[in-house]
Write a protein that binds this DNA or RNA. Structure first.
Lengths: 185, 185
DNA sequence: AGCAGCATGTAAGTGGTTACATGATTGT
DNA sequence: ACAATCATGTAACCACTTACATGCTGCT
């Protein structure tokens, strides 16, 4: 199983929603897709020129201010569908917060509490962000709306779960604190 | 902000639970930590030799069968605490399933259904796995138990959230199906 | 005798991050 | 004028994955 980049998929997908400049592709991926996908900016322009050379994308007039807008071609749409049908890979998780929590016995209980506060606050921020996204989507009644709602809903479920977990864990902390101080003497 | 590897942290943390061979470190990271952390095996042995050269880890007798067990040193424990106190980084998400779902309008509704089934089944499998982990932890009454339970609980919350989301989304599919067929003709 | 699992590594390749570099345009 | 944003790239570095290579031990 060769290590295949899914950057093409993300970029073609972005362009499938309409012509835009490379800068706008960047922003779309960092913004809307940001909750479940990320591309480093250093990848996007090289990918766009490669796709253009391959005839999957073409220049079409100028963008809003300067630069040229990019448009997906028929071949590009076909390629997008191919890529969508391929088995998906999700990068293995690397959650630095949970890694630290797992070895929490080496931390002071204040440090543990701080980690949990961070997790809780991050979940709250995510939820607040999703609310505005939901408002954006509401004004959109294309056939793409349903799928945006679906992915948004995933984010909301995940954030609510993290929030609930963080609050439960914070509530459990005093008992752990007692336990470890009893163990130490 | 230099791109810093957290492999040292994961490996030192693993060894902080007791002496073990490199092979066992591998297994611990792939198993117990696997739900929120991953290391590629090609990294572990080089890391161990580097840590040994740095005096953070030392050989101590032989493992269960062959090979030599590795033990964390006092300096290693100190380093571990340093690393734990550093700000954590969590790799940006790259969820191939959600990426595809987001562009679901280019997929047939059968393909979308299949993606959701995969998400649902994966969540169920995770939950089943967590159940056995919970049993393992129950027999362990060290002061580390509380933190294992905490990270396990995170996994359970996340898996339950994903399961609920997948089931809701599957239930919503018929309406989407209707909508898109109405739009097409 | 043979297989599964234990055990330890290496080497090539690549995907991706980060930082740097440059200039146009719009708003104040 | 000046700042912020739009816009397009490049180059170096590195972390990581994958595949390969090798031998031992315990069981049947």
């Amino acid at each position: 199983m060769p290590r295949r980049s899914q950057t093409d998929l993300a970029v073609l997908g972005a362009l499938s929603t309409g012509p835009m400049t490379g800068y706008e592709v960047r922003r779309l991926i960092a913004g809307t897709l940001g909750h479940f996908w990320s591309e480093s900016f250093g990848q996007i322009y090289p990918t766009l020129t490669r796709l253009e050379r391959g005839g999957l994308v073409r220049r079409s007039g100028t963008g809003r201010t300067s630069g040229s807008a990019l448009e997906i071609t028929t071949a590009g749409t076909a390629r997008l569908r191919e890529l969508l049908a391929e088995p998906h890979v999700t990068t293995p998780p690397r959650n630095g917060l949970l890694l630290r929590l797992f070895f929490g016995s080496h931390l002071s209980s204040d440090e543990v509490e701080s980690l949990l506060h961070q997790a809780r606050d991050r979940a709250r921020e995510a939820l607040a962000g999703y609310e505005t996204v939901r408002d954006d989507i509401a004004g959109d009644d294309s056939h793409e709306q349903a799928y945006r709602t679906m992915t948004l809903s995933f984010g909301e479920h995940a954030a609510r779960a993290q929030l609930a977990w963080a609050e439960e864990s914070l509530a459990a902390l005093p008992a752990i604190r007692e336990g470890s101080s009893r163990a130490r003497g």
